[in-house]
Structure formats: C-alpha cells, structure tokens
Design a protein around this nucleic acid. Sequence first.
DNA 1: AGAAGTTAGTTGGATATCCAACTAACTCGC
DNA 2: GCGAGTTAGTTGGATATCCAACTAACTTCT
Lengths: 174, 174
Amino acid sequence: MAARTINVGSVKQRSKNGVKANGRNGEAVVKPVNFGPLATWIGFNLRMAQESAFQAFSRRSLEVGESPGRFATLTLIARNPGISQTELSLAAGRDKSSLTPVVEDLVRRGMVERKRMRDDRRAYSLNLTMAGRKTLTQLTRCARGHERALDSVIGMRDRKRFIQILKKIAAEVK
Amino acid sequence: MAARTINVGSVKQRSKNGVKANGRNGEAVVKPVNFGPLATWIGFNLRMAQESAFQAFSRRSLEVGESPGRFATLTLIARNPGISQTELSLAAGRDKSSLTPVVEDLVRRGMVERKRMRDDRRAYSLNLTMAGRKTLTQLTRCARGHERALDSVIGMRDRKRFIQILKKIAAEVK
DNA sequence: AGAAGTTAGTTGGATATCCAACTAACTCGC
DNA sequence: GCGAGTTAGTTGGATATCCAACTAACTTCT
C-alpha cells in the first residue's frame, strides 16, 4: 500500500556509444553499438538523459532517506498551501490516482496534513507539517547539489535556453 | 507475462502554469500554481518534457498497434544483427531483466528470431525476421512524424545543440 | 427542488521498470 | 584440468505509473 522501499537502479557498464566487454586477453574492449536513427532523434535522447538525471537524483535523495518522487510533491504542497490532490496531480504531471498512495504515505509519516475542504467536502486540502517542512529542506539541499551537477554538464551559457525548450516541449507537444 | 495492452495516458486539462477549474459562472478560470524552485530546475523540466514527448509518441505508435517501448528495441536489433540481450539492454538504457519479457513477446509474435550463440551458449543472438522488419518500417514512419513535430517545437536552429546537451547528460551524469 | 451531469478521490487491473538472487555456462590462474 | 570468479539470462518481489470504473459530493438546468 504505502511506499517503503526505495529503488535506485544502477547501470553497471556504459560507455559513450558502446558496451564494455572483455577481450581475449582481459583488456576492456568496447564493442561499438550502432544506434541508427536513434542517435539523432530527440525522443530517444530525451529519455536517456531523463533516466540518467533521475538515477543521479535518486542516489542523492536516498542519502536523506526519501524517495525522489516525493520531492516535487512536497515542494508543490509547500508552495501552494491547501492545494487539492487533483490540482497537485495536474501540476506534477501525474494521474490523480497515482497520488493516492503517495499522499497516504506522506500523511502516515506525518509530513502532510490532510483535511476536507470546507466548501467542497469531496476535496482534500493539503498542507505540510513541521516535519514535512524539515524533510523538504533536506531534499531541497540534495536537489540544489543535483542541479549544480547538471549545470556543470550543460554549461551556464546554454542553461536558460535549454530549460525554455524543455518547457516548450512539455507545453506544446501533446 | 507478455505485454499486450498499450497504455497511452492523457492528461485531461493542463495549461501553461495552472490548472483549469470552473468559475462561479461556468467560464474556465485558471488557478495559478506556484512551482517554486521547480520552475527553473533541470530535473523537473526534463521529466515533464520527456513525459509529454513519450505520451505523444505512444499515441502515434498505437496507430500501428505497437507499444512505444518496442521501437528502440527493434531498431537496435536491426542495426546490430546478432546482438545479445545484455548488449541490447545496455544500449537501450534498461536493466537486462526488463528485456526478458519484451524479447519474449517479440519472439512470440514472430518479430525477432532468437538463437543461442555458437561461441557462448549462455548468450542469445537476436535478429529481426521479415515481419519484424516490416513492423519496424511502420514504427519508423511514426517516429519520423513525431520527430518532425518535436523539431517544429524546438526549432532547427537549436536542435543540434539540444541533442548534444541531452547526450552529454546521459553520458556524464551518473 | 429534483434529475442529470460533472468532479474529487479511491479502487482494481495492467504495464514497465528496478534490484537481488539464482542457474548455467564461460574464463582464468595455477 | 579444475576450482574460483565472472557473465548471460531468468525469476521473484517491489515501486511507480497508467486507465477505467466507481462512490460521494457538487452544480446546473428546467
């Protein structure tokens, strides 16, 4: 029911465009892989980059003992006190049913307080508790480190434009 | 066991930075959502963009009756005849155990031929069948349309640099 | 005010993915 | 050549998601 274990995943051997194997004499040999059209296609590269970034952030957030997915949720609740689960799911880009177990877990662990709204008793009103704020602070520290690492890969010159493009894709591709 | 159903997912209502709701008189009203630091963080925007692009491609590949995940797999097998499952998993950025059901499904449906390798009888040698090549051709057509749509969002001026950055992230962030 | 339609959240069923542990098959060092 | 270590693929157990269908609670329309 509630999420407990945290999977972090790690790809064992990866090189720029090949797979490491062992040659006859034991030296590492890279067998080149032909990616064909995938090499220049946005979709594939977007997925690979997202995966890498997510794995890296997972490792960091694990140090705080939190699942990486909790971060966006806690931030959105913190910034929008009283937000409902549906609003939250739309903002986070997840289905509302995905949020049921997440919120349940956060409530159970005392990070989030959930009350029925006065003027609409179907909806819940979500707010961070003190403990939730504390956890968010720690996660935010992780995220800042993560972002710095990404920045150094991207380079500050291209960063702004890069984010603009990502936002444009999220907004316009449907 | 074998994948059959294809989920495509659709977010019902989304606007640039808010959630659509209904005002007192029925006109659509956008309640702004505060994203806080998420708005400028790479990781979050990367995830949202990837999600959008993936959903869009899912819809397209559904028209051919294939799951979107099959595309990279088929392409990699086509371009690297005789590739093993482990090599494939590394190239596709997935765990080798994730490939077991995928390959099983492709073999069962006659898209892929799987033989033990001569010189290493643990490993499988994967090749496309005629049917596999045909399906790949259709999927490639979908993917080209998808890429064109992404191109028009990104703009050809930034496209090359954008892909470079994605590749850099995938390669260097760990 | 009642019926019909819509919306918030949950439940159920499914896929995709991960990691750890396992078996069979290979390689290396002595 | 044989035992120890490594590697290919599968299996098992878990999370995160999705969509469709459901219930309860609103809103609208007449």
